[in-house]
C-alpha cells in the first residue's frame, strides 16, 4: 500500500541536528529531534515562532540537505542521498508552503498542471481536466484561468493546495496552509487532507497555529527552541 515502508513509517527521523550559518556565525537550530510518523495519519507540528517547525518540515520533505542524524522518507535515507534520488522522492510528495509560491506568469490551471508535468509531459488535455477537477474541489471552479495577481490571498493558497494534492502524493507536508484562509475554507482543506488519509493512505504533516485543526489531528508534536517538548496522540 502507498506510503507504507519496510519500517512501517512514512517518515522516520532520529537524532537529527541542524545548523545555520558557518564559522563564527554557525548556530544550531534543531537539537536531537526524533519522530516516527505513521502512514495515513495527520500529524500537527506546533510551537512558537522561530521554534524550528519550518526547518523540520523542509528537512523531512527533502527540501534541505540533512546534516546530522537520519531521516527516512518513504523508506529512503535522505542523509547523503544523491541528487537523482532526491528528485525522484520529491515527485512522490506534495508540499504546501507558508507563502503560496505560485508562479505569477501562469494561470491557476497551469500552476496546478506543473505538478503533473513533472511526471512526464504526455496527455495535456487529461492533465488540464485533472487540474480543473482539483481546483473545483478547493472551490475555484470559476477561477481556473485567473493569474495569481487577480486572486485573493485565500484563493492563491487554495491553488497551492490543489497543486500539492493533484498528483496523489504519498506524503503531504503543509506549512501553515490555512493561515491565509477564512475559517470555512481552512476547514475544508484540512478535511480534504484527512479524507485523503482515510481513502488513499496519504500521510500529512502540517504546521499550524490554528486550534480548530487540533481536534482533527491524530497526533500533536510541539517544538520549542529546536527541541521536541511534547508529543501527544489525539484519540
Amino acid at each position: 500500500m502507498d506510503g507504507v515502508t519496510k519500517t512501517g513509517f512514512a517518515v522516520s527521523v532520529s537524532g537529527m541536528n541542524h545548523y545555520f550559518g558557518s564559522g563564527e556565525a554557525r548556530k544550531q537550530a534543531i537539537w536531537d529531534v526524533s519522530l516516527d510518523i505513521a502512514p495515513g495519519s495527520l500529524t500537527v507540528l506546533m510551537g512558537p515562532s522561530g521554534s524550528g517547525k519550518t526547518t523540520v518540515l523542509t528537512l523531512m520533505g527533502c527540501l534541505r540537505d540533512v546534516q546530522e542524524g537520519s531521516v527516512r522518507l518513504l523508506g529512503e535515507e535522505l542523509n547523503g542521498a544523491s541528487g537523482a534520488q532526491v528528485v525522484a522522492l520529491r515527485k512522490r510528495i506534495g508540499f504546501i508552503f507558508q507563502a503560496h509560491n505560485l508562479h505569477g506568469s501562469l494561470t491557476a490551471t497551469q500552476n496546478v498542471m506543473m505538478a503533473l508535468q513533472v511526471h512526464g509531459s504526455g496527455d495535456t488535455a487529461a492533465q488540464r481536466r485533472a487540474a480543473h477537477h482539483m481546483l473545483g474541489l478547493v472551490g475555484l471552479a470559476d477561477r481556473v484561468n485567473y493569474l495569481p495577481q487577480n486572486l485573493s490571498g485565500g484563493q492563491k493558497q487554495r491553488v497551492a493546495v490543489a497543486r500539492a494534492l493533484v498528483s496523489n502524493p504519498e506524503v503531504v507536508f503543509a506549512d501553515e496552509p490555512t493561515a491565509a484562509l477564512d475559517k470555512e475554507s481552512g476547514m475544508t482543506v484540512v478535511d480534504m487532507l484527512k479524507d485523503l488519509g482515510r481513502l488513499r493512505g496519504t500521510t500529512t504533516v502540517m504546521v499550524t497555529h490554528d486550534n480548530r485543526i487540533l481536534d482533527r489531528a491524530d497526533r500533536i508534536v510541539t517544538l520549542e527552541d529546536g527541541r521536541v517538548v511534547s508529543d501527544k496522540n489525539n484519540t
Binding site: A88, R90, R92, H103, V118
Partner: peptide, 15 residues
C-alpha cells in the same frame, strides 16, 4: 526574479 517560483518547481521534483 523567479527564484522562489523555481524553488517551488524544484520542490515538486523538477531537475
Amino acid at each position: 526574479d523567479h527564484l522562489s517560483e523555481y524553488a517551488t518547481f524544484k520542490a515538486v521534483g523538477y531537475p
